[in-house]
Design a protein around this nucleic acid. Structure first.
Length: 444
DNA sequence: GGGTAGATACATA
DNA sequence: TTCCATATGTATCTACCC
């Protein structure tokens, strides 16, 4: 795929952003990150050789245990639809295929088709920047009903290979195809070929697959041969080690922009660096974080499906709604927005028979500074008027403010009725951060 | 000192 | 003309209570 010069794209993005309030806020956050990194480096400098040796030895034991217990006999397949929302739109309007197109609007692009990507247009890019990069870019409004329909069709295919497959999002799923392979005498690679063909036949949308001995590796691999391709990583310890060693840390699900920056400052750019730094990480990070880093660096991930949410249990942890708008400081207007959000959220909650007792109000000022304020009540509520009353109380304590976003989140649920029988609840499937059993780490 | 709540940050799609 | 979203979950730090 021919593409525009990355440096040029960067320059355009910078020129368009540099005077914005958003950019100033990013700079402010960057200062905080830099301060955290500096503190870590100072801590590191103070580490004695003896302390470091102690931590390294402790980590060596963990590494050995992880290596010894790694199960490489399973076959996992991670499916990722190619430019999914854009591809769905092209189904309805094939003329879009030959044009650069983004699903979203001037505020934000959800997805860009491959034609638009040639210009540097990416998902999660503000539309006005995308248009600058590609003046002829066509915007299409998102239509989630459409994407859900196509997604449901892909899931029917997935279920043929693993009835317990994990749907991570509308366009991504993880399957344990070990049993299917055994029963049909096929390899993971063959399953991937067949599944991709069936998905394409059924939906006329292409997807890419990663095949590997665990969920983490399959997920990483699924991104390495896009679009309409696949990568097979054999269940072989040496192959896994070689694959991981060269892998940039940012490719690990759970290591985002900030964690990458932090780890790079400590000297880790690849997973093998991460292993070499194990003693430092153990000394400087929480146990959860350092354990996560070494497991990921070794390519150790989940090999069996996570526990299903049992019937009658509350699957989700929270439900929220937020809206961005033109900066508003008028008190009455802000209170009205609060009421609308509360009502809309109450409707969503009613749909799932949820009652909650923690209300969190989220505010974003016109400077992009985010504040959250929460209360936990002694009783459960679900009515829009009740949610509104609590949210308003929190809001009034913060005013006056000029806001560009308001959101309300409810949590600490009490479920009135059971979910429909046989239906997986959403927990653990919506997010699918897929980092191999342990949870996403924060920075150090 | 452990549990709970609140605030904030980070990550993912 | 338009000028950086939304929904969800997890981790960590701090404060407070018993």
């Amino acid at each position: 795929m021919q593409s525009v010069d990355a440096a040029k794209v960067k320059q355009v993005v910078f020129e368009l952003s540099k005077d914005s309030a958003h950019f100033k806020n990013e700079e402010r956050k960057q200062v905080q990150t830099a301060a955290r990194i500096k503190k870590l480096q100072e801590q590191r400098a103070k580490l004695t050789a003896a302390e470091l040796a102690l931590h390294t030895r402790a980590m060596d034991a963990k590494v050995a245990a992880l290596r010894a217990s790694a199960d490489l006999t399973r076959t996992w397949l991670c499916v990722d639809m190619d430019a999914f929302f854009a591809a769905c739109e092209e189904l309805d309007n094939p003329t879009l295929k030959s044009k650069p197109m983004a699903v979203g609007g001037i505020g934000m692009c959800c997805t860009a088709n491959y034609e638009a990507r040639k210009y540097g247009v990416r998902s999660a890019m503000p539309g006005f920047i995308a248009r600058k990069l590609c003046p002829e870019l066509v915007f299409v409004k998102p239509c989630f009903e459409k994407y859900s329909r196509v997604s449901a069709a892909t899931r029917e295919v997935f279920a043929c290979y693993d009835p317990d497959f994990e749907a991570c999002s509308l366009d991504e799923a993880c399957l344990d195809v070990t049993d299917y392979c055994t029963e049909h005498g096929v390899t993971g690679g063959q399953v991937a070929e067949e599944l991709r063909a069936r998905v394409r036949e059924r939906t006329r949308v292409t997807c890419s697959c990663g095949v590997a001995p665990n969920r983490l590796l399959a997920k990483i691999a699924s991104d390495m041969n896009k679009p309409d391709g696949q990568i097979v990583l054999p269940g072989d310890a040496d192959a896994v080690a070689a694959f991981m060693a060269r892998l940039p840390i940012r490719k690990v699900p759970g290591i985002g922009k900030v964690t990458e920056q932090t780890l790079r400052a400590l000297g880790a750019g690849t997973c093998s660096d991460l292993l070499a730094l194990r003693g430092v990480l153990a000394a400087l990070c929480s146990t959860i974080s350092s354990d996560f880093f070494i497991a990921a660096a070794l390519g150790v991930g989940r090999t069996c499906h996570s526990e299903m949410v049992r019937e009658g249990e509350v699957g989700r942890k929270g439900i929220s709604m937020e809206r961005t708008f033109r900066p508003v400081s008028d008190r009455a207007e802000l209170e009205a927005k609060c009421g609308e959000l509360a009502e809309a959220l109450a409707e969503d909650m009613a749909r799932e028979s949820l009652r909650g007792r923690t209300i969190t109000l989220k505010l974003k000022t016109s400077n992009f500074e985010v504040r959250t304020r929460a209360v936990t009540l002694g009783h459960y509520i679900s009515a829009g008027a009740d949610i509104c009353a609590e949210a308003l109380r929190l809001l009034r304590m913060e005013l006056p403010l000029e806001l560009r976003l308001m959101g309300i989140r409810m949590s600490s649920f009490f479920q009135v009725t059971s979910p429909p029988p046989g239906q997986k609840t959403l927990s653990g499937f919506l997010q699918g951060s897929g980092n191999g059993g342990s949870r996403s780490p924060p920075g150090c």
